[in-house]
Amino acid sequence: MIRILIAEDQELIRQSLEIILGNKPDMKIVGVAKDGKIAVGLAEKLIPDIILMDIRMPEIDGVKCIKIIKEILPQIKIIVLTTFDDNEYVFNALKNGASGYLLKGLSSTELVSAIRTVFNGGALINPNIAVKVVEFFHESSNIEYKINVDELELNNLSKNELKIMKLISRGMSNKEIALEANFSEGTVRNYISNILSKLNLRDRTQIAIFAIQSRLEMKKIDN
């Protein structure tokens, strides 16, 4: 069962999400929050698997909520669901630990699929969002936002580790990566742990962001 907390200041949207997701046999709405302060409190109290997080909310905005919650409870996965696709919102939400960034207006089928993907270890870095992240990184004024890693450790990554990073940047789950790379899921998890340790990154979302930032997707990795 996927336990979900909804953080959304608009009552109509909150109610719609409760109806859509509450009807799914593998999902349960454990709480709803109308502002960021309540969202943080409920996250600590309920410890949901997934939080659907709006960006612009009273008290504490979604970007700050993500940072606070991920520092306290890093195991909680957060999906941004908003009308705002500004490059800086996208980047800061992902950098603070969001596992995905979705725009309101998507179909209920797409939303349900996204929640299941993130719950199963995927990161929703879809092509449109990836483009925005790349644009944000490559604006000279935003150089201070870039994720920095030890160049020596980066150069010491194996071809398989680089391949895993590339597949993570496509938003693939561990299961999908295992099928694509012909590894077991356990091997994929071990590679990811090694990558996180070597590059001193927090989670797979940071791996995805760094892979996009460094344009790993454009580089050929020989077998």
Rank of each mutant, 00 (worst) to 15 (best):
P74C: 10
V131L: 14
D85K: 05
T117S: 13
S113W: 01
V63A: 13
I125Y: 10
S113C: 00
Y89H: 14
V133P: 01
K70C: 04
I68W: 02
V134W: 05
L94D: 04
L103H: 08
E59C: 01
L111M: 07
G121D: 04
G105M: 09
A123R: 11
L103N: 02
A98V: 08
D85F: 01
I60A: 12
P74N: 15
I55T: 13
E88P: 01
G100P: 08
V134Y: 04
K132Y: 02
G97S: 08
L73V: 14
I60P: 12
I76P: 10
N87S: 13
D86I: 08
S107R: 04
P127E: 02
K132I: 01
Y89G: 03
I125F: 15
D61F: 05
R116Y: 05
A114T: 05
V131I: 13
I76D: 08
F84Y: 15
I66A: 14
V118F: 06
I72L: 14
E59T: 12
V134H: 03
K67S: 15
V80S: 10
I125V: 14
I55D: 11
F136H: 03
I115A: 09
V90F: 02
N92A: 03
V131Y: 10
D54P: 13
G62D: 12
A98Q: 06
T82L: 06
V118T: 04
A114Y: 04
L94R: 10
I68D: 10
R56N: 15
N92I: 01
S99H: 09
N87D: 14
N96I: 02
P58V: 14
D85H: 07
I78T: 05
Y89P: 02
E135G: 00
L94V: 03
L103I: 15
N128S: 14
A114N: 11
N96T: 07
V134M: 02
G105P: 10
L124T: 08
C65L: 09
F84K: 00
L102P: 05
L73A: 08
I72Y: 00
V90G: 04
G97Y: 06
I115R: 03
